[in-house]
Design a protein around this nucleic acid. Structure first.
Lengths: 228, 228
DNA sequence: ATCAAAACCGGACCGTGGTCCAGTTTTCTT
DNA sequence: AAGAAAACTGGACCACGGTCCGGTTTTGAT
């Protein structure tokens, strides 16, 4: 039970809007993984269910991009404001939709059987984790993407492409036997502006640590001896 | 001159909207890195300049999030439609703003002096590239983020955090001497749903290749001998 | 200089995400 | 059981991104 302190993270999301009293979705904190609806008012719980149901129906019938806040509200015979009060924003709603499969996945690597769950050596668990996640992503990819509006643009962006391609070329010179095209994506992940921002501004990490981590990553990936 | 075929990528972006005749920004293709404005009509070029100037003024005075298409149009004394015709969408405008520094950066590692530019061994170039990019990102971070709307949410997302933390824990068991917190970000980069989607749906890569790349990455990062 | 076609301008218009608050329903207290 | 407080509802409202098209300007051929 390693992640005991992270139970809250198993919940949908809703980054705590400016609610006067305890935010509905946040109260689930007490409800653990067992039950689903917590101390919601009767009608609120009913509407929540109807909304999720309506959203699921929409995504099934007309694709994830048809999941418009208004459309969901209409489909569930509920006011628009209710949707926002319940889920915070569009992302929150989509996240809630993904929540069930998310919980299952988390359970499988937190307490499931090896090699995904505890029991196997860490490296094997890592391998299994990646493959499991790849497969899982393939399933409800549409929702995952819909929950992250600007997702596709990140990789079709020409400027970003040039940078990544440059890394791929250098990698091919350094480790010709590897799948440098894909490896370059992993490296670029560590240089993503959004990540930089999150780590430096929000987490307060010093720049030098990022630089060290980068050179270390390069050394590991290329099999170079760490020269320091 | 390795990237000759990628010159187009040096340009802002504007993923080719449904323009009847050659799209303005796309015509720059002929203008290489030297000149700035290509075969734009006189008034169009004038307005383009005024728009960029106005946008820069806005971001300087009131921050990047004040760069609203309407605001820019108003500030430049120009119709809203003009902004969209010129830059396609908000992202296009922001990208155009970043274009200058982008070109400079690209030039520095494509044809600049070593170790960033050609001449140094690839691994050293990789190291230099990462650090350069980190520094560059720190500069105009605000714009970079503004150009990618949903950027911050990616890392504050609780579900994603749990997954990443799990990877970090496993990594610490496998390579205790490394900065596993940061390393885990690189690994997770390879499992990003948006990337999966791009590679499988858009590029048509088979799933198995992604899986192989993942296990290979894990092996490299943990220093495990590739057992296959 | 003149004229037609091509390119461009501007602002009205739409859909969507998100906010707000008056009125209603539920829950709690006594 | 009754009444007050807390919580919830729903739809009017706003801002912004993006589309469209009638009217204007530029271009280039004659």
């Amino acid at each position: 039970m390693l992640y005991a302190g992270f139970m809250s993270a198993v919940l949908p999301s809703v980054p705590a809007p400016q609610e006067p009293v305890g935010h509905p979705e946040l109260v689930q904190l007490g409800a653990a993984l067992g039950g689903d609806e917590p101390c919601l008012r009767a009608d609120a719980a009913r509407n929540r269910a109807r909304l999720l149901e309506a959203a699921a129906r929409l995504v099934a019938e007309r694709g994830a991009e048809a999941v418009t806040m208004e459309a969901v509200a209409a489909e569930a015979r509920v006011g628009k404001g209710t949707v926002f009060r319940r889920f915070g924003d569009r992302t929150g709603l989509l996240t809630a939709l993904l929540d069930h499969s998310e919980k299952k996945f988390q359970a499988s690597f937190l307490s499931g059987p090896p090699p995904l769950g505890p029991g196997a050596p860490p490296v094997e668990r890592l391998r299994a984790f990646g493959c499991a996640m790849l497969r899982r992503s393939a399933e409800d990819l549409e929702l995952q993407l819909a929950a992250e509006p600007c997702a596709p643009r990140r990789f079709t962006n020409p400027a970003r492409s040039v940078l990544r391609h440059h890394v791929a070329v250098l990698l091919r010179q350094a480790v010709p036997e590897a799948d440098c095209e894909l490896l370059s994506h992993a490296l670029m992940g560590q240089l993503d502006p959004a990540l930089i921002h999150h780590l430096t501004k929000q987490c307060g990490l010093p720049m030098v640590r990022l630089e060290d981590a980068w050179t270390d990553l390069v050394d590991r990936v290329t099999g170079t001896a760490p020269t320091r």
